[in-house]
């Protein structure tokens, strides 16, 4: 049986069969605007690149394995609690957020919103430009927004990995990492308590924190519509609200860090059910 026969049987040059290799013809491909010279066969061109990339990467990994071994500490024991307790590095950004937010927010709600927000990106970005090449200039809004989140993610991870020691206190690389840090002594206050200190009644102070929180989101909802009218009109109502709602959330960590470090504020919103 010759090769040709087998091939003919499996891939008959029969135009009635919907999936088959019909024929190879010389001449122009049907890719518009592109000459056939622009295309190359995947075998061998792309497959070579993939093979080389895989082998080089594997070699790199093997090299790492020669001097760095997977860690193994003492056997797990409920009796000795390590200090600090650290999550794996890729989650340390979220763990670092625990300094600033309660676990329900830092550990559950914000991560879920990150996932949902990321999935939403293609449906929110209506700018058709800048596809198919590394671009900055044509889509400044998308890029700056994404970078803002991306940089936050890594900054919090780096802090968690390299700057957090005993009791989750801040340690510089040159500090003695076995010595406990004295607590800073600063007392953290809730926003409503601060306002009461300024002479507000309890209920007025509570009410003010609600109003300020709503105001925070309101600024994100209203200001862009005034500043960037055309951009806002193009987005349409649903996209506009989603984009700026998510943007308000994207700013919430930097804002909280600022309030905490600048003004020793523990929570800026205190409700009977949760605190932010």
């Amino acid at each position: 049986m010759s090769e040709r026969n087998t091939t003919e049987n499996i891939y008959p040059r029969n135009p009635k069969k919907s999936y088959a290799l019909m024929e190879l013809v010389k001449g122009q491909g049907f890719q518009t605007k592109k000459q056939p010279e622009d295309t190359v066969f995947v075998w061998p061109h792309l497959l070579y690149i993939e093979l080389i990339a895989a082998l080089v990467f594997l070699a790199g990994l093997l090299w790492v394995c020669t001097f760095k071994h997977a860690p193994l500490e003492d056997m797990a024991s409920a009796d000795t609690t390590p200090n600090p307790m650290k999550a794996p590095w890729y989650f340390l950004g979220l763990q670092e957020l625990l300094v600033f937010f309660d676990p329900w927010l830092a550990g559950m709600v914000l991560p879920s919103l990150i996932v949902v927000g990321m999935i939403a990106i293609p449906y929110l970005d209506i700018n058709p430009k800048g596809v198919g090449y590394w671009a900055w200039k044509e889509r400044p809004f998308a890029i700056w927004t994404f970078q803002f989140g991306w940089v936050q993610w890594w900054v919090f991870i780096i802090i968690g990995v390299f700057f957090r020691g005993l009791d989750w206190a801040w340690y510089w690389p040159w500090d003695d990492w076995h010595q406990h840090k004295p607590s800073s002594g600063a007392t953290l206050n809730d926003m409503n308590v601060i306002l009461e200190g300024w002479g507000m009644s309890v209920s007025a102070a509570n009410m003010s924190t609600y109003i300020m929180t709503i105001g925070y989101f309101a600024v994100f909802m209203v200001l862009p519509a005034i500043l960037w009218r055309k951009f806002s009109r193009n987005l349409g109502f649903a996209r506009y609200v989603t984009v700026w709602g998510l943007m308000a959330l994207l700013w919430i960590s930097p804002v909280k860090v600022f309030l905490r470090l600048g003004f020793n504020i523990k929570y800026f919103l205190v409700t009977p059910w949760f605190k932010v």
Binding site: E73, M75, M85, P103, F274
Partner: peptide, 22 residues
């Protein structure tokens, strides 16, 4: 899975988040 101190406590911190799920 290695069931060492690193494993137990990292997962303890992580799963602690779950109890705070709204």
């Amino acid at each position: 899975l290695p069931w060492d101190q690193l494993a137990l406590w990292a997962i303890t911190v992580g799963t602690k988040m779950a109890e705070a799920t709204p």
